[in-house]
């Protein structure tokens, strides 16, 4: 499938900022099922951009801009060719061993309720794939997500206790729950072609299964991602894989407006 992405983020400040430094995780990389045809990260003001790879193997772009800055627009445009791999990943950059992804973080620390839920849905089978599919479906059945909303800092445990709103929340719950089942699991951010109006990148998960490798799960759909997904960044949680980590020097408030389009191009399968 040929997917086009256009992702505009406009940060407006109530007072001009002296400096802005951002770390952007907005660039997908080639895998066996994903070929980046073209990709561009652009900024609407004088800024210096530097590309690098972070410790997780994600492509990152450092953005440095000197003020005074009243607003800054980051525009990502690109085209990616994808193929359906039934969720099984091949050819991803893997600088860290899977066992690292058993680690808990403040955002993914499981509550007793979440751990019990994981144990409950996976009871009766020892097959790791089956257990994770059941977890994926159970989360899908339990939470109805509205189109994605900006990061509100909710932890997996908090979201599980309340009403999950975004794909970020259910993805983080999956990651947290899978780890309680001793399955290495990580958070993925990227783009999903689902025909809805979105205002944040989509989130899903990957879990490690011995003998199979990393396998993707999307608890929003209850399925494994097919060719409608553009995989961008992975991390231990939503913070670690966030599209933007920013720091600004200046007073006042920040407002973020996002305009995101994920479209299918052409008809070739």
């Amino acid at each position: 499938m040929r997917i086009a992405v256009e992702h505009r983020s406009v940060y407006r400040f109530t007072q001009p900022q002296a400096r802005i430094v951002q770390m952007l995780r907005l660039t997908p990389c080639d895998t066996q099922h994903q070929t980046v045809v073209s990709w561009m990260v652009g900024v609407d003001c004088d800024a210096r951009l530097r590309d690098a790879t972070d410790g997780y193997g994600n492509a990152v772009t450092m953005l440095y801009a000197e003020g005074p800055i009243e607003a800054i627009e980051v525009v990502v445009t690109g085209e990616v060719l994808t193929t359906d791999n039934a969720g099984v990943l091949r050819g991803t950059p893997e600088p860290l061993p899977p066992a690292l992804f058993l680690r808990s973080t403040p955002r993914t620390a499981p509550s007793a309720a979440l751990a019990a839920f994981a144990a409950d849905v996976s009871a009766g089978t020892t097959d790791p794939i089956e257990r994770l599919h059941r977890l994926n479906q159970a989360l899908h059945a339990r939470f109805r997500c509205v189109p994605d909303v900006p990061d509100n800092g909710l932890t997996a445990a908090q979201a599980f206790a309340g009403k999950a709103e975004a794909s970020r929340d259910v993805a983080q719950m999956f990651v947290s729950a899978a780890r309680t089942l001793e399955a290495p699991a990580r958070y993925v951010s990227g783009y999903h072609l689902d025909g809805t109006q979105q205002c944040a990148p989509h989130a899903w998960c990957e879990a490690w299964i011995d003998g199979l490798g990393w396998v993707a799960f999307d608890p929003v759909t209850g399925l494994s991602p097919a060719d409608g997904y553009v995989r961008v960044a992975v991390g231990l949680d939503s913070e670690g894989a966030a599209a933007v980590a920013g720091h600004r020097i200046g007073h006042g408030e920040e407002q973020l407006a996002v305009d995101l389009h994920v479209d299918r191009l052409g008809n070739e399968e």
Partner: peptide, 16 residues
């Protein structure tokens, strides 16, 4: 391995 990989003092951010 888990003694390293699950240890908070091992910083994946600076791996590589």
């Amino acid at each position: 391995p888990e003694l390293i990989l699950r240890n908070e003092q091992f910083r994946p951010e600076v791996a590589g």
